[in-house]
Amino acid sequence: MTKNQQGMTYAQAGVDIVEGARAVDAIKDTVHSTYRPEVVGDIGGFGGLFSIAAAKDMADPLLVSGTDGVGTKLKVAQLLGKHDTVGIDLVAMCVNDILATGAEPLFFLDYVAVGKLKAEAMAQIVGGIGEGCRQSGCALIGGEMAEHPGVMDPDDYDLSGFCVGIVDRPKMLDPLSVREGDVLIALPSTGLHSNGYSLARRVCLDGKTFDEQTAPCDELGGMSVADALLIPTRIYVKPVRSVMQEVPGGIRALAHITGGGITENLNRALPDNVDAEVCLGSWPVPPIVHYACAAAGLTDEEALKTFNMGTGMIFICDPNKVTDVEAALARQNETFYRVGRIVAGEGKVRYANAGGLYGFQA
Protein backbone atom coordinates (compact mmCIF):
# COMPACT_ATOMS: atom_id res chain seq x y z
CA MET A 1 0.00 0.00 0.00
CA THR A 2 1.11 3.58 -0.65
CA LYS A 3 1.49 6.04 2.20
CA ASN A 4 -1.70 7.80 1.15
CA GLN A 5 -3.62 4.53 1.17
CA GLN A 6 -2.31 3.77 4.66
CA GLY A 7 -3.71 7.11 5.81
CA MET A 8 -2.31 10.50 6.79
CA THR A 9 -3.68 13.17 9.10
CA TYR A 10 -3.74 16.88 8.39
CA ALA A 11 -1.14 17.37 11.14
CA GLN A 12 1.14 14.79 9.50
CA ALA A 13 0.80 16.77 6.27
CA GLY A 14 2.16 19.80 8.13
CA VAL A 15 -0.94 21.73 9.25
CA ASP A 16 -1.44 21.85 13.03
CA ILE A 17 -5.08 22.69 13.80
CA VAL A 18 -4.44 22.49 17.56
CA GLU A 19 -1.66 25.08 17.31
CA GLY A 20 -3.99 27.21 15.19
CA ALA A 21 -6.56 27.19 17.98
CA ARG A 22 -3.82 28.17 20.47
CA ALA A 23 -2.87 31.05 18.20
CA VAL A 24 -6.46 32.31 18.08
CA ASP A 25 -6.63 32.22 21.89
CA ALA A 26 -3.30 34.06 22.08
CA ILE A 27 -4.53 37.03 20.03
CA LYS A 28 -8.00 37.50 21.56
CA ASP A 29 -6.98 40.19 24.04
CA THR A 30 -5.14 42.11 21.33
CA VAL A 31 -8.16 42.02 19.05
CA HIS A 32 -10.53 43.11 21.82
CA SER A 33 -8.25 46.05 22.69
CA THR A 34 -8.91 47.57 19.24
CA TYR A 35 -12.71 47.37 19.32
CA ARG A 36 -14.82 50.46 18.77
CA PRO A 37 -18.50 50.79 19.79
CA GLU A 38 -19.51 49.99 16.19
CA VAL A 39 -18.08 46.45 16.33
CA VAL A 40 -20.82 43.81 16.38
CA GLY A 41 -20.09 40.30 17.61
CA ASP A 42 -16.70 38.84 18.46
CA ILE A 43 -13.66 37.16 16.98
CA GLY A 44 -14.28 33.71 15.50
CA GLY A 45 -17.25 34.36 13.24
CA PHE A 46 -17.29 33.80 9.50
CA GLY A 47 -17.39 37.53 8.85
CA GLY A 48 -16.58 40.70 10.77
CA LEU A 49 -19.58 42.93 11.54
CA PHE A 50 -19.38 46.70 11.87
CA SER A 51 -22.22 49.21 12.24
CA ILE A 52 -22.17 52.21 9.91
CA ALA A 53 -24.73 54.16 11.94
CA ALA A 54 -22.30 57.10 12.14
CA ALA A 55 -22.80 57.66 8.42
CA LYS A 56 -26.37 58.83 9.00
CA ASP A 57 -25.04 62.23 10.07
CA MET A 58 -23.06 62.69 6.85
CA ALA A 59 -24.39 64.48 3.79
CA ASP A 60 -22.88 62.04 1.31
CA PRO A 61 -20.88 59.28 3.03
CA LEU A 62 -18.26 57.45 0.97
CA LEU A 63 -16.52 54.24 1.98
CA VAL A 64 -12.79 54.26 1.23
CA SER A 65 -10.76 51.05 1.10
CA GLY A 66 -7.08 50.22 0.88
CA THR A 67 -4.92 47.11 0.91
CA ASP A 68 -1.17 46.65 1.24
CA GLY A 69 1.61 44.54 2.70
CA VAL A 70 4.94 45.00 4.46
CA GLY A 71 7.14 43.59 1.70
CA THR A 72 10.71 42.48 2.22
CA LYS A 73 11.09 44.44 5.45
CA LEU A 74 9.82 41.18 6.94
CA LYS A 75 13.21 39.65 6.19
CA VAL A 76 14.80 42.10 8.64
CA ALA A 77 12.28 41.09 11.31
CA GLN A 78 13.06 37.43 10.67
CA LEU A 79 16.80 38.14 10.83
CA LEU A 80 16.44 39.69 14.30
CA GLY A 81 13.70 37.36 15.50
CA LYS A 82 11.69 40.47 16.34
CA HIS A 83 8.10 40.25 15.15
CA ASP A 84 6.17 42.76 17.28
CA THR A 85 6.58 45.87 15.07
CA VAL A 86 5.93 44.72 11.49
CA GLY A 87 2.21 44.62 12.25
CA ILE A 88 2.38 48.37 12.87
CA ASP A 89 3.92 48.73 9.41
CA LEU A 90 1.08 46.71 7.91
CA VAL A 91 -1.65 48.88 9.40
CA ALA A 92 0.26 52.09 8.65
CA MET A 93 0.63 51.36 4.95
CA CYS A 94 -3.12 50.85 4.62
CA VAL A 95 -4.51 53.60 6.87
CA ASN A 96 -2.08 56.25 5.62
CA ASP A 97 -3.20 55.54 2.07
CA ILE A 98 -6.92 55.98 2.73
CA LEU A 99 -6.10 59.00 4.90
CA ALA A 100 -5.08 60.81 1.72
CA THR A 101 -8.81 61.27 1.02
CA GLY A 102 -9.41 62.58 4.54
CA ALA A 103 -11.12 59.33 5.53
CA GLU A 104 -11.44 58.12 9.11
CA PRO A 105 -10.26 54.47 9.30
CA LEU A 106 -13.04 52.26 10.65
CA PHE A 107 -11.91 48.66 10.59
CA PHE A 108 -9.04 46.44 9.52
CA LEU A 109 -8.57 42.83 8.46
CA ASP A 110 -5.25 40.99 8.22
CA TYR A 111 -3.90 37.95 6.40
CA VAL A 112 -0.87 36.12 7.79
CA ALA A 113 0.70 33.26 5.82
CA VAL A 114 3.29 31.18 7.68
CA GLY A 115 5.42 28.18 6.90
CA LYS A 116 4.89 26.68 10.36
CA LEU A 117 2.36 28.12 12.78
CA LYS A 118 3.67 29.01 16.23
CA ALA A 119 1.18 30.58 18.61
CA GLU A 120 3.76 32.74 20.44
CA ALA A 121 5.18 34.22 17.24
CA MET A 122 1.67 34.81 15.91
CA ALA A 123 0.78 36.65 19.11
CA GLN A 124 3.75 38.98 18.55
CA ILE A 125 2.80 39.66 14.93
CA VAL A 126 -0.86 40.30 15.69
CA GLY A 127 0.18 42.31 18.74
CA GLY A 128 1.85 44.75 16.35
CA ILE A 129 -1.23 44.84 14.16
CA GLY A 130 -3.30 45.62 17.24
CA GLU A 131 -0.94 48.44 18.20
CA GLY A 132 -1.25 49.89 14.70
CA CYS A 133 -5.03 49.71 14.94
CA ARG A 134 -5.04 51.46 18.31
CA GLN A 135 -2.77 54.22 16.98
CA SER A 136 -5.08 54.78 14.01
CA GLY A 137 -8.37 54.32 15.88
CA CYS A 138 -9.63 51.45 13.72
CA ALA A 139 -10.95 48.09 14.89
CA LEU A 140 -9.34 44.76 14.03
CA ILE A 141 -12.48 42.79 13.22
CA GLY A 142 -11.17 39.77 11.37
CA GLY A 143 -8.35 38.03 9.61
CA GLU A 144 -6.82 34.77 8.48
CA MET A 145 -3.86 32.71 9.64
CA ALA A 146 -2.80 30.34 6.88
CA GLU A 147 -0.20 27.60 7.36
CA HIS A 148 1.70 26.73 4.16
CA PRO A 149 3.89 23.68 4.77
CA GLY A 150 5.97 22.70 1.76
CA VAL A 151 5.35 26.10 0.17
CA MET A 152 7.09 28.39 2.66
CA ASP A 153 10.07 27.71 4.93
CA PRO A 154 9.02 26.92 8.52
CA ASP A 155 10.25 30.29 9.89
CA ASP A 156 9.01 32.35 6.94
CA TYR A 157 5.83 34.43 6.92
CA ASP A 158 4.11 37.14 4.90
CA LEU A 159 1.58 39.81 5.86
CA SER A 160 -1.12 41.68 4.03
CA GLY A 161 -4.00 43.80 5.25
CA PHE A 162 -7.21 45.53 4.22
CA CYS A 163 -8.69 48.70 5.69
CA VAL A 164 -12.06 50.43 5.26
CA GLY A 165 -12.72 54.03 6.22
CA ILE A 166 -15.38 56.65 5.68
CA VAL A 167 -15.42 60.28 4.54
CA ASP A 168 -18.19 62.77 3.90
CA ARG A 169 -17.89 63.78 0.23
CA PRO A 170 -18.20 67.56 0.92
CA LYS A 171 -15.23 67.31 3.31
CA MET A 172 -13.12 64.96 1.18
CA LEU A 173 -9.58 66.02 0.33
CA ASP A 174 -9.37 66.39 -3.43
CA PRO A 175 -6.37 67.06 -5.70
CA LEU A 176 -8.67 69.00 -8.03
CA SER A 177 -8.95 71.69 -5.34
CA VAL A 178 -5.19 72.40 -5.39
CA ARG A 179 -4.29 75.90 -6.60
CA GLU A 180 -1.18 77.82 -7.60
CA GLY A 181 0.23 79.48 -4.47
CA ASP A 182 -0.72 76.66 -2.10
CA VAL A 183 1.89 75.75 0.54
CA LEU A 184 3.56 72.36 1.10
CA ILE A 185 3.97 71.18 4.69
CA ALA A 186 5.74 67.89 5.44
CA LEU A 187 5.37 65.66 8.47
CA PRO A 188 8.57 63.69 9.10
CA SER A 189 8.98 59.96 8.62
CA THR A 190 10.53 57.70 11.25
CA GLY A 191 12.96 56.25 8.69
CA LEU A 192 12.54 54.15 5.58
CA HIS A 193 9.01 53.12 6.67
CA SER A 194 8.17 50.07 4.52
CA ASN A 195 9.47 50.95 1.06
CA GLY A 196 12.71 50.40 -0.81
CA TYR A 197 13.76 47.40 1.28
CA SER A 198 14.84 45.22 -1.62
CA LEU A 199 17.56 47.80 -2.21
CA ALA A 200 18.14 48.75 1.44
CA ARG A 201 18.64 45.16 2.58
CA ARG A 202 21.04 44.47 -0.26
CA VAL A 203 23.31 47.46 0.41
CA CYS A 204 22.96 47.63 4.20
CA LEU A 205 22.86 43.97 5.29
CA ASP A 206 24.02 41.58 2.56
CA GLY A 207 27.62 40.42 2.90
CA LYS A 208 27.79 41.33 6.59
CA THR A 209 27.92 38.92 9.50
CA PHE A 210 25.11 38.90 12.04
CA ASP A 211 27.42 40.64 14.51
CA GLU A 212 28.15 43.39 11.98
CA GLN A 213 24.45 43.81 11.17
CA THR A 214 23.53 44.16 14.84
CA ALA A 215 26.54 46.13 16.14
CA PRO A 216 26.08 49.75 17.29
CA CYS A 217 26.77 52.18 14.45
CA ASP A 218 28.09 55.70 15.06
CA GLU A 219 26.45 56.98 11.86
CA LEU A 220 23.08 55.88 13.27
CA GLY A 221 23.51 57.40 16.72
CA GLY A 222 24.55 54.09 18.26
CA MET A 223 21.66 52.09 16.80
CA SER A 224 22.48 48.99 14.77
CA VAL A 225 21.77 48.94 11.05
CA ALA A 226 19.30 46.08 11.49
CA ASP A 227 17.41 47.85 14.29
CA ALA A 228 17.30 51.11 12.32
CA LEU A 229 15.85 49.28 9.32
CA LEU A 230 13.15 47.82 11.56
CA ILE A 231 11.83 51.14 12.94
CA PRO A 232 8.07 50.95 12.28
CA THR A 233 6.21 53.13 9.81
CA ARG A 234 4.61 56.21 11.34
CA ILE A 235 0.81 56.41 11.41
CA TYR A 236 -0.49 59.91 10.60
CA VAL A 237 -4.20 59.52 11.29
CA LYS A 238 -4.43 61.53 14.50
CA PRO A 239 -2.57 64.69 13.40
CA VAL A 240 -4.27 64.77 10.01
CA ARG A 241 -7.76 64.20 11.33
CA SER A 242 -7.24 66.75 14.11
CA VAL A 243 -6.14 69.45 11.65
CA MET A 244 -9.11 68.69 9.40
CA GLN A 245 -11.47 69.20 12.33
CA GLU A 246 -9.75 72.30 13.74
CA VAL A 247 -9.08 74.04 10.43
CA PRO A 248 -11.80 73.08 7.92
CA GLY A 249 -10.55 73.60 4.38
CA GLY A 250 -6.99 74.21 5.55
CA ILE A 251 -5.70 71.05 3.87
CA ARG A 252 -6.65 70.84 0.21
CA ALA A 253 -4.91 67.51 -0.56
CA LEU A 254 -2.51 64.99 0.98
CA ALA A 255 0.27 62.82 -0.41
CA HIS A 256 1.39 59.68 1.42
CA ILE A 257 5.07 59.31 0.52
CA THR A 258 5.60 55.59 -0.10
CA GLY A 259 7.30 53.57 -2.84
CA GLY A 260 8.47 55.95 -5.54
CA GLY A 261 9.38 58.62 -2.99
CA ILE A 262 8.36 62.26 -3.21
CA THR A 263 8.80 62.33 -6.99
CA GLU A 264 6.21 59.67 -7.73
CA ASN A 265 3.73 60.28 -4.90
CA LEU A 266 3.34 64.03 -4.46
CA ASN A 267 2.29 64.29 -8.11
CA ARG A 268 -0.68 62.03 -7.31
CA ALA A 269 -2.11 64.90 -5.23
CA LEU A 270 -1.91 67.42 -8.09
CA PRO A 271 -4.23 68.45 -10.92
CA ASP A 272 -2.63 68.67 -14.35
CA ASN A 273 -2.29 72.48 -14.43
CA VAL A 274 0.16 72.94 -11.53
CA ASP A 275 3.49 71.57 -10.31
CA ALA A 276 4.78 71.04 -6.79
CA GLU A 277 8.07 72.86 -6.25
CA VAL A 278 9.92 71.21 -3.36
CA CYS A 279 12.89 72.97 -1.76
CA LEU A 280 15.64 70.47 -1.01
CA GLY A 281 17.25 70.87 2.40
CA SER A 282 14.12 72.31 4.02
CA TRP A 283 13.64 69.18 6.16
CA PRO A 284 16.05 66.72 7.83
CA VAL A 285 16.87 63.32 6.31
CA PRO A 286 16.89 60.56 8.99
CA PRO A 287 20.25 58.87 9.56
CA ILE A 288 19.14 55.44 8.29
CA VAL A 289 17.81 56.98 5.08
CA HIS A 290 21.07 58.86 4.49
CA TYR A 291 23.01 55.68 5.35
CA ALA A 292 21.05 53.58 2.82
CA CYS A 293 21.40 56.20 0.07
CA ALA A 294 25.15 56.46 0.65
CA ALA A 295 25.58 52.68 0.74
CA ALA A 296 23.73 52.39 -2.57
CA GLY A 297 25.55 55.36 -4.10
CA LEU A 298 22.27 56.96 -5.14
CA THR A 299 22.18 60.33 -6.85
CA ASP A 300 19.77 62.85 -5.34
CA GLU A 301 17.41 62.25 -8.27
CA GLU A 302 17.39 58.50 -7.68
CA ALA A 303 17.08 58.87 -3.92
CA LEU A 304 14.02 61.13 -4.25
CA LYS A 305 12.17 58.50 -6.28
CA THR A 306 13.29 55.50 -4.21
CA PHE A 307 12.95 56.39 -0.51
CA ASN A 308 10.70 58.84 1.37
CA MET A 309 13.84 60.86 2.30
CA GLY A 310 12.38 61.79 5.68
CA THR A 311 8.90 62.93 4.65
CA GLY A 312 6.05 60.53 5.34
CA MET A 313 3.08 62.78 4.59
CA ILE A 314 2.90 66.07 2.70
CA PHE A 315 0.01 68.52 3.14
CA ILE A 316 -1.01 70.86 0.35
CA CYS A 317 -2.48 73.81 2.23
CA ASP A 318 -4.59 76.85 1.45
CA PRO A 319 -2.11 79.76 1.84
CA ASN A 320 -4.77 81.79 3.69
CA LYS A 321 -5.09 79.05 6.32
CA VAL A 322 -1.56 77.66 6.46
CA THR A 323 -0.65 79.46 9.70
CA ASP A 324 -3.78 78.00 11.31
CA VAL A 325 -2.76 74.53 10.11
CA GLU A 326 0.70 75.01 11.58
CA ALA A 327 -0.78 76.26 14.86
CA ALA A 328 -3.03 73.19 15.03
CA LEU A 329 -0.03 70.92 14.48
CA ALA A 330 1.97 72.81 17.10
CA ARG A 331 -0.81 72.31 19.65
CA GLN A 332 -0.38 68.57 19.11
CA ASN A 333 3.39 68.91 19.59
CA GLU A 334 3.86 67.80 16.00
CA THR A 335 7.09 68.44 14.13
CA PHE A 336 6.50 69.87 10.66
CA TYR A 337 8.38 71.68 7.90
CA ARG A 338 7.40 74.08 5.12
CA VAL A 339 9.00 72.36 2.16
CA GLY A 340 7.73 74.20 -0.92
CA ARG A 341 4.80 75.59 -2.86
CA ILE A 342 2.47 74.96 -5.76
CA VAL A 343 3.36 76.70 -9.02
CA ALA A 344 1.96 76.71 -12.54
CA GLY A 345 2.83 73.54 -14.42
CA GLU A 346 1.53 70.22 -15.67
CA GLY A 347 1.07 67.93 -12.67
CA LYS A 348 4.71 67.16 -11.90
CA VAL A 349 7.14 67.46 -9.00
CA ARG A 350 10.16 69.74 -9.45
CA TYR A 351 12.98 70.54 -7.04
CA ALA A 352 14.60 73.81 -5.99
CA ASN A 353 18.01 74.17 -4.29
CA ALA A 354 19.69 71.42 -6.29
CA GLY A 355 22.44 69.71 -4.34
CA GLY A 356 20.94 70.69 -0.98
CA LEU A 357 19.09 67.47 -0.14
CA TYR A 358 21.15 66.75 2.97
CA GLY A 359 21.79 70.37 3.92
CA PHE A 360 19.01 70.98 6.47
CA GLN A 361 19.87 73.58 9.11
CA ALA A 362 17.75 73.50 12.27
Rank of each mutant, 00 (worst) to 15 (best):
Q78M: 10
R179E: 14
K3S: 08
C204V: 11
F162W: 11
A146Q: 12
A186P: 00
E120T: 13
I88F: 01
D275M: 07
C138P: 01
Q213Y: 01
G260Q: 04
V31L: 00
A100I: 12
D16G: 11
T258D: 03
S198E: 08
V349Y: 05
L280W: 03
L357M: 08
T299V: 10
S136G: 13
L109A: 11
I166R: 07
G249I: 06
D110G: 13
C204W: 09
I342F: 11
I235M: 11
S194M: 09
L304A: 04
A352F: 04
V70T: 09
L99E: 01
L187C: 05
D300M: 08
E246K: 14
G161F: 03
G312D: 10
H83T: 01
A121L: 10
V289D: 00
E38L: 04
L80I: 14
L192G: 08
V322G: 02
E334Y: 08
R234H: 14
R201L: 12
A77F: 07
G7N: 05
G310H: 08
G20H: 06
L229F: 15
E246D: 10
G359R: 13
L329Q: 01
H83A: 02
A276F: 12
M8K: 12
L220F: 09
A327K: 14
D110M: 10
G102E: 02
I141F: 00
S198C: 06
L192C: 12
I185H: 01
K238Q: 15
F46Q: 09
L106C: 05
L106N: 00
G249L: 05
A59D: 07
G128M: 01
R252A: 09
L199M: 14
A228T: 06
S51Q: 06
S65V: 12
L229M: 13
A253P: 01
P239N: 08
D272I: 03
M313T: 08
Y337M: 12
C293M: 14
Q361N: 15
A54D: 07
R268Y: 08
L80R: 15
Q124F: 02
P105G: 07
W283K: 04
L266T: 02
L90I: 04
G142I: 01
T299H: 09
G14W: 02
T2E: 05
A11W: 03
Y351E: 06
G181K: 14
G196E: 04
V247E: 00
V76I: 15
P175N: 13
S224W: 06
R241T: 13
G128K: 03
V86H: 06
R169T: 03
P319H: 14
C279K: 15
V243Y: 01
C317P: 04
P105K: 03
A23E: 05
Q245S: 14
F210V: 15
I288S: 03
S282T: 15
R36V: 00
G297Y: 10
L187I: 05
H290V: 04
E346M: 08
N195R: 05
M152G: 01
G222L: 10
